[in-house]
């Protein structure tokens, strides 16, 4: 791995940084997850081990006999990367003390999609955060169980159509709001929680590096567009990610020790939010919302987003 310890945020440094995920992986064309991983790689600082929950990223990067990973990498199951990481962290420390493991410190990163993180593996994350293992857990959130064929998860937006939250004649897609995962993890009072997305890449890399540097657990919530599931143009994944910030659907912020809320400049500098309609109209999964019968429902979604945005601004001390 890279011996260069600095995070790479300029293009000239980035192209020199060791690549952690090679080409030849089988993520769909236009999937943002490999970009999320690339940006994570730009933040690395030394020996690193990656634990990956089951999901698109896990499956499509390690189809035997090929692996796209240049880092030591382990997948065990869908819901347990945080627990696997707990074991790795504590084992390497003990083994190093006994002279059985060379490195005094290894950065251990656990990765999971939104299904693994918001839903099935939530308990394992909560436990790992509470126990204080020095890991970074990153959820790449593409808004549904895309790997199994676009089923709703706790991360699915209100109004989003999935194969288990169909938009029908009486139901306009998912009726429930998205679980505020970063807030919930921040409530564990861990040293560092941040939301990121790939278009604001410098912000992403800087935050990921902070997450590595704090002592104790850190949680990164990365937004990650999925053209296949969202029925969006493959070329638009990064711009959609930006639009999610601009509409307040994925605001960027940090929470230090569960108490100090800091709004990141990409969100803070917004004079006002763009209407969620602008985001919705880019994707097939929201197109039903523009039927006249769902106008009120769409309005309710906007009100919810506005409400959450005001609350976040207040928390972050932003006027």
């Amino acid at each position: 791995m890279a011996t260069d310890n600095k995070p790479a945020v300029s293009i000239k440094d980035m192209i020199k940084k060791d690549r952690i995920l090679n080409s030849g992986h089988r993520m769909c064309a236009g999937c943002a997850a490999p970009v999320v991983i690339k940006l994570m790689g730009m933040a690395l600082r030394g020996p690193t081990i990656v634990c990956n929950n089951t999901g698109c990223l896990e499956v499509a990067t390690t189809i035997y006999p090929y692996t796209a990973w240049n880092l030591p990498w382990i997948h065990v199951a869908f819901e347990n990367a945080a627990a696997v990481a707990s074991g790795i962290i504590e084992a390497t420390k003990v083994m190093h003390a006994k002279g059985h493991f060379e490195h005094e410190h290894v950065d251990v990163i656990a990765l999971g999609g939104d299904g693994a993180s918001f839903d099935i593996g939530f308990g394992a994350i909560s436990g790992a955060m509470e126990r204080g293992h020095d890991m970074v857990y990153m959820c790449y959130d593409n808004g549904a169980y895309q790997n199994t064929g676009i089923q709703r998860s706790g991360a699915t937006f209100m109004g989003q159509e999935t194969t288990t939250s169909w938009a029908g004649s009486v139901i306009p897609g998912k009726l429930e709001r998205k679980k505020p995962i970063a807030e919930i993890i921040a409530a564990h009072k861990i040293p560092y929680v941040a939301t990121v997305e790939p278009s604001n890449y410098r912000d992403f890399i800087t935050k990921f590096r902070k997450a590595l540097e704090v002592e104790g657990p850190a949680f990164i919530h990365a937004f990650s567009p999925c053209p296949r599931g969202w029925r969006s143009a493959t070329g638009e994944s990064i711009s959609l990610s930006k639009l999610a910030v601009e509409t307040g659907l994925h605001p960027l912020y940090e929470v230090i020790n569960g108490e100090e809320w800091i709004m990141s400049s990409a969100s803070k500098n917004l004079k006002e939010l763009k209407p969620v309609d602008e985001y919705f109209k880019t994707q097939g999964q929201f197109k039903h919302l523009f039927k006249p019968e769902w106008a009120d429902f769409r309005k309710r979604i906007q009100e919810q987003v506005d409400h959450d945005w005001e609350l976040l601004k207040k928390r972050c001390g932003v006027e």
């Binding site: 081990i49 634990c51 382990i74 065990v76 199951a77 819901e79 347990n80 945080a82 627990a83 696997v84 990481a85 707990s86 074991g87 790795i88 504590e90 084992a91 390497t92 083994m95 493991f101 308990g123 394992a124 909560s126 436990g127 790992a128 509470e130």
Partner: peptide
């Protein structure tokens, strides 16, 4: 926080 995680942490530790 659970036996599921108990065995999972064992696998992680054993893997290194």
């Amino acid at each position: 926080e659970s036996e599921h995680s108990a065995m999972s942490a064992c696998v992680g530790a054993s893997a290194v």
